[in-house]
Simulated assay, not measured.
Amino acid sequence: MTLSKREDFRNKGVLKLSSVIDIDQIKNVQTYLWQEINSKFSIHIDEPSTWFSNASNPVGDTRARRLNGMGSIMRELKASGKLDEIESAIQSSLDQVFGTHTWCPLDLWYSLLSFPGSESVWNVPHKSWHSDEPCVVGDAEPWSLFVFVFLDDVTADMGATTVISGSHRRAERLAKIFGTSGNEALINAFESVNSGLFDNPKDVTLLPMDQVLDPLIQEDPWFQELVQEGSADQRIQRFIEEGSSLHGIEQKAVTLTGVGGDIIVFDPRCLHTFSANVSGLPRQVLRLDFRRQI
């Protein structure tokens, strides 16, 4: 079972682990965050009229909105110790899947709180597809793992992050063709997660994050369609239900959804973007990054 989960993650770049975190711990953190958001922004979860009363606070586009200033709240939450047991539970789950001491957490937690935008129908997004980490030739593992922690029950229509499963493997293939060496500045930019992995950064051949999508669009009609607008029914059928396969790599659009206490482990080399929150409700998701051990 453990091996199959590890293999599934290697193939897809996404792995959901259910009921990892005690629901009382989830509720405790959720309550704390809403209290702090109310105190800092005068936003109350039960009063929609307060969600965007101060136009300088929300950020985002028509699909979903987030808040500036959550960083300080998350740092205070981390310092309070309220995340310690949650972090321990995540670490234990990762150890079971990937092996003990394979990954260790970084200090910073992120809030992925999303408020409803102005769109009324959920669709597979066509904009802002990107990856957050380069692909290194000869290295099948990412430098880091992103772990999404669900505080709310999140469905796709609540603005779920959407990932192209398998796209990290497509990027690995492209790296062998288009990758370049001597990218010391890019490697140094990720020093917090790749420190000690390379004897000589000058010898590392990699494909930067911003050089993945265009080659995929050029060689694959499926990606050409992905970045074009289309009806919700057609795009859900094409990208979520059907998916595609090329070079022996299966790919689908996967929405990162779950219930309170679930986590999703995510390879940051996968193409991903945020989607429209059309649910009428804000939703709380946290992210903790893990660094690969030598």
Score class of each variant (00 low, 15 high):
11 N>P: 05
11 N>L: 11
12 K>Q: 08
12 K>F: 08
12 K>H: 04
13 G>Y: 05
13 G>P: 06
13 G>M: 08
13 G>K: 04
15 L>G: 10
15 L>N: 03
15 L>A: 05
17 L>A: 01
17 L>E: 03
17 L>W: 01
18 S>V: 10
18 S>N: 12
19 S>N: 13
19 S>E: 10
19 S>W: 02
19 S>T: 05
19 S>L: 01
20 V>Q: 00
20 V>A: 00
20 V>I: 02
20 V>H: 00
20 V>M: 01
21 I>C: 04
21 I>G: 01
21 I>N: 00
21 I>K: 00
22 D>K: 03
22 D>E: 11
22 D>C: 06
23 I>P: 06
23 I>Q: 13
23 I>N: 06
23 I>L: 15
24 D>I: 01
24 D>V: 03
24 D>S: 13
25 Q>D: 15
26 I>L: 00
26 I>H: 02
26 I>S: 02
26 I>G: 00
27 K>G: 02
27 K>L: 10
27 K>F: 02
27 K>D: 13
28 N>H: 07
28 N>E: 15
29 V>R: 12
29 V>I: 11
29 V>P: 06
30 Q>N: 15
30 Q>P: 03
30 Q>A: 15
31 T>I: 05
31 T>D: 15
31 T>G: 12
31 T>R: 15
31 T>S: 14
31 T>P: 00
32 Y>R: 07
32 Y>N: 06
33 L>W: 12
33 L>T: 05
34 W>A: 07
34 W>D: 11
34 W>K: 06
34 W>Y: 12
35 Q>T: 08
35 Q>C: 09
35 Q>I: 02
36 E>L: 14
36 E>R: 13
36 E>G: 01
36 E>C: 13
37 I>T: 01
37 I>G: 01
38 N>H: 11
38 N>I: 03
38 N>A: 11
39 S>A: 15
40 K>V: 08
40 K>P: 01
40 K>H: 13
40 K>I: 06
41 F>W: 03
41 F>Y: 11
41 F>V: 01
42 S>V: 07
42 S>N: 14
42 S>C: 00
43 I>Q: 06
43 I>M: 06
44 H>A: 12
44 H>K: 14
44 H>D: 10
45 I>D: 07
45 I>N: 10
45 I>M: 03
45 I>V: 12
46 D>Q: 07
46 D>L: 09
46 D>G: 08
46 D>W: 09
46 D>M: 04
47 E>A: 14
47 E>D: 12
47 E>T: 05
48 P>V: 02
48 P>A: 04
48 P>H: 04
49 S>D: 15
49 S>K: 09
49 S>C: 06
49 S>W: 07
50 T>G: 05
50 T>C: 10
51 W>C: 09
51 W>L: 04
52 F>I: 00
52 F>A: 05
52 F>T: 00
52 F>P: 08
52 F>L: 07
53 S>Y: 09
53 S>D: 14
54 N>D: 14
54 N>F: 13
54 N>T: 02
54 N>P: 09
55 A>K: 15
55 A>V: 08
55 A>R: 04
55 A>P: 10
56 S>N: 12
56 S>R: 12
57 N>V: 05
57 N>E: 11
58 P>F: 07
58 P>R: 08
58 P>L: 05
58 P>Q: 13
59 V>H: 01
59 V>Q: 10
60 G>P: 10
60 G>A: 02
60 G>K: 02
61 D>L: 06
61 D>Q: 03
61 D>P: 01
61 D>H: 09
61 D>G: 11
61 D>W: 07
